[in-house]
Amino acid sequence: MNPGYKQEMTKTMKSSILHKFFGLLTLVALLSCSKDPIDENGLLITGRSQCFMTFFDLLGSDHRTVLVSGQTVIDTTAMTVTAVARYGTNMLRLKPYCSVVTDAIVEPTMGIWTDYSQPQKYTVVSGNRLVRKTYTVTVTVQK
């Protein structure tokens, strides 16, 4: 075989291997950059379809709970939350917060001062954002 031809072949093979290597590297890099889906608030959308509330509390202006211990009932079938606020609670200015099943979110956002003199509604949305359950929160005050 012509030595020049052999050298040219070796060069071509090396170049081909290099191209394949870099191509593979680019593919890996691209795959590693792919993002999981997120919602409009930047929260992760997952595959979970569970959708329920596990805990609920209300804070007064002093950022201490106003609810009577042991009196809060969360009914995940009827989708209701009932609670009793201590005597003297200013029902017009309370800050709610809750816990929900993994990856679920709550709409509208809790953690803002809210008037609880009337029942309030919150929707729990599952991690896959396909299941929505609206809870009605009713708080009564000790008289």
Binding site: S61, D62, G88, N90, L92, R93, W113, D115
Partner: peptide, 15 residues
């Protein structure tokens, strides 16, 4: 003072 009360009760020292 949005929707603030017209009272504060259960006050103790340092509050």
């Amino acid at each position: 003072f949005p929707n603030a009360a017209d009272f504060a009760y259960g006050l103790t020292a340092d509050q």
